[in-house]
Write a protein that binds this DNA or RNA. Structure first.
Length: 577
DNA sequence: GCCGTTTTCGGCCCGACTGTTTTCAGTCG
């Protein structure tokens, strides 16, 4: 079994290798587009291939479909192997150095025999680059600088770090200039789970003034690009920030353009072209002329011009949203206000920061009408996990608190029970059956093989007492890969046993992620979005869970904790048979 | 290599900035 992710990686590498060889750039783009499309697919390519429907996927034609078949059968495809045999491994990395593309790679290789970053650096130190046709001392200096930056470039930032940082940067700039409309755009605005760089857009009729203020911010380590329309800096923290400025009447086009994604924008421009129009960050123009066809302070003008409904930023990935807009079947995406209660939270009974009563008060304050208290079970000793006796005591406490409540708010008795390596649960199932809401999750034995792990989780779902699986893949962004698990089989088991799967809203989890959650919902799985709160403030993390759900195209009815308490209890009763 | 409400062949998004040019190619997003 080979995952879509791995297949997409191979096509991405084919594109890289072909680019180094200066093959037809449109062919390179075709492979790259295929890789991007595959990454966004919610069904496994193997399943699609077994139905013979690969060529129905956009950007997959006869040739790439055949190669997908090769990869499913053998793990690779002849083209990939040929390219790897012909192209020195180091060249792809040389091209990854900012400022070096296919042409410079070839020039450097032909003139200096450079086939790796190390050789490139040596050539630069020995001042041999400046002798190459089309390159001077400045280029040589830039290359050496770029290699250094490339080596210590910071990894992608999780959204939970990038968004507050970008908003702080925008606020600092706005403060320096008095009042200024400035927006965080790019992948942050689309709420992508990790961010490579930050895009800002500002409204001003004096762009030079804005750019001057921007490059003099204390955050700035170096200025990478500097022009009247566009400035790029690197901050002390090592992340790149682009700033674009527009006059007010065209700001909507700038916002739209730099929100992206690129793939989404390209599709829109193709649609515009068929209507004789050209879309750019400056506006919508008659094709081949500079005659502006419309102005727009707000980005919605782009969609209005094309006769489409607004498309939310979170789903602008060319993953079917344009077709949905054209056919009038845009989903009404879930919003933060739809959440009625949190079904995964911790207290001082295990590793939480506050008491049951305080956590419930925090949920009330947010306007929720219920909360499930789901402390850890005994196996997780480090969290002071509850055994049967302490769980009974906590249940009694919750009964007392509920009896004293006068506003209809309800605390649900729950547990986050460990799924042990053999698939059994860490607490007596008879006791778990007395709870209102049982969360089960994996916190150990991450190295089990895919078959064992999948069977282990399914066994837990088939226990009859588990209502939801928390953070189903166990990944920690930037820290721990997901464990090996066959999610398609998990989804099928979740439907068969009517077990919900979680979108865990913690910014370093976001698990299930966008693509997996969309796939799960499409297979009929019920989703629950939870903060996994260990502190009252963590209830604010719903922002990230909702962002992930919106990127997964989820609507409120897909998510069980958007339901009122009576509907939720009815569903729980029914699923427990 | 993919695609099609002008097309099964001939296209393939659009614009900014930099450096090395002497009017533009390369790279990037």
């Amino acid at each position: 079994m080979i995952s879509n992710y791995e297949i997409a990686r191979i096509f991405g590498q084919i594109a890289d290798l072909m680019e180094v060889r200066e093959d037809n750039p449109f062919k390179v783009r075709a492979y790259r587009k295929a890789a991007e499309t595959i990454e966004g697919l919610t069904e496994s390519l193997e399943a699609i291939a077994s139905r013979g429907e690969l060529e129905k996927i956009p950007n997959i034609g006869k040739a790439i479909a055949e190669k997908i078949g090769d990869i499913c059968r053998t793990g690779t495809t002849p083209l990939y192997e040929e390219l790897r045999a012909k192209v020195p491994a180091g060249l792809v990395e040389v091209m990854a150095v900012p400022g070096i593309g296919p042409t410079k790679v070839r020039a450097l290789r032909e003139a200096l025999g450079v086939t790796s970053i190390e050789e490139l650096e040596t050539a630069g130190r020995e001042q041999r680059i400046r002798g190459v046709q089309g390159m001077g001392a400045k280029t040589e200096e830039n290359i050496l600088h770029a290699i250094e930056a490339h080596r210590r470039r910071s990894d992608r930032w999780p959204l939970g770090k990038a968004l507050p940082y970008a908003e702080g940067l925008a606020a600092s700039l706005a403060e320096r200039l008095g009042s200024l409309r400035i927006e965080v755009l790019g992948s942050i605005r689309r709420r992508v789970e990790t961010i490579g760089d930050i895009d800002l857009g500002a409204v001003s009729t004096e762009p030079e003034k804005v750019m001057d203020a921007f490059v003099s911010l204390p955050h700035v380590k170096e200025v990478l690009v500097s022009g009247p329309a566009s400035t790029r800096i690197r901050t002390n923290e090592g992340i790149q920030v682009d700033l674009r400025v527009s006059r007010p009447e065209d700001f909507g086009f700038l916002v739209h353009h730099f929100t992206g994604s690129r793939a989404h924008n390209i599709r829109l421009r193709e649609i515009a072209e068929r209507r004789g129009a050209r879309i750019s960050e400056y506006g919508i123009f008659e094709a081949g002329t500079d005659r502006e066809l419309t102005t727009g302070e707000e980005e919605g003008e782009v969609y209005r011009f094309l006769g489409l409904p607004d498309i939310p930023p979170e789903i602008r990935e060319d993953r079917g949203e344009i077709e949905a807009a054209q056919s009038g079947s845009m989903p009404v995406l879930i919003e933060a206000d739809d959440i009625r209660g949190n079904l995964h939270s911790h207290t001082t009974w295990s590793d939480g920061a506050v008491s049951t009563e305080e956590m419930a008060a925090a949920a009330r304050k947010r306007g929720h009408s219920y909360i499930a208290i789901t402390d850890h079970s005994k196996r997780l000793g480090i969290t002071n996990g509850l055994d049967e006796e302490r769980l009974r005591a906590q249940m009694a406490e919750i009964d007392r608190l509920n009896a004293a409540a006068t506003d209809g708010f309800r605390i649900l008795k729950g547990s986050e029970v460990d799924i042990l390596p053999d698939g059994t649960l860490d607490l007596d199932p008879a006791l778990l059956a007395e709870l209102d809401f049982v969360v089960a999750s994996i916190h150990s034995g991450f190295k089990q093989d895919i078959e064992t792990m999948t069977a282990r989780m399914i066994h837990a779902m088939e226990s009859g007492v588990v209502d939801m699986i928390a953070h189903p893949t166990g990944r920690l962004l930037g820290a721990r890969d997901p464990y090996a698990i066959d999610l398609d089989r998990i989804y099928d088991a979740a439907v068969a046993t009517q077990t919900a799967l979680e979108i865990n809203a913690f910014p370093d989890r976001l698990d299930l992620n966008d693509v997996n959650a969309r796939r799960a919902r499409d297979r009929g799985v019920k989703i629950s979005i939870n903060t996994d709160a260990h502190h009252p403030d963590h209830l604010g993390l719903y922002f990230y869970g909702i962002a992930t759900a919106r990127r997964a195209w989820l609507t409120a009815p897909d998510v069980i904790n958007t339901w009122g308490l009576p509907d939720l209890m009815r569903w729980l009763e029914k699923r427990r048979g």
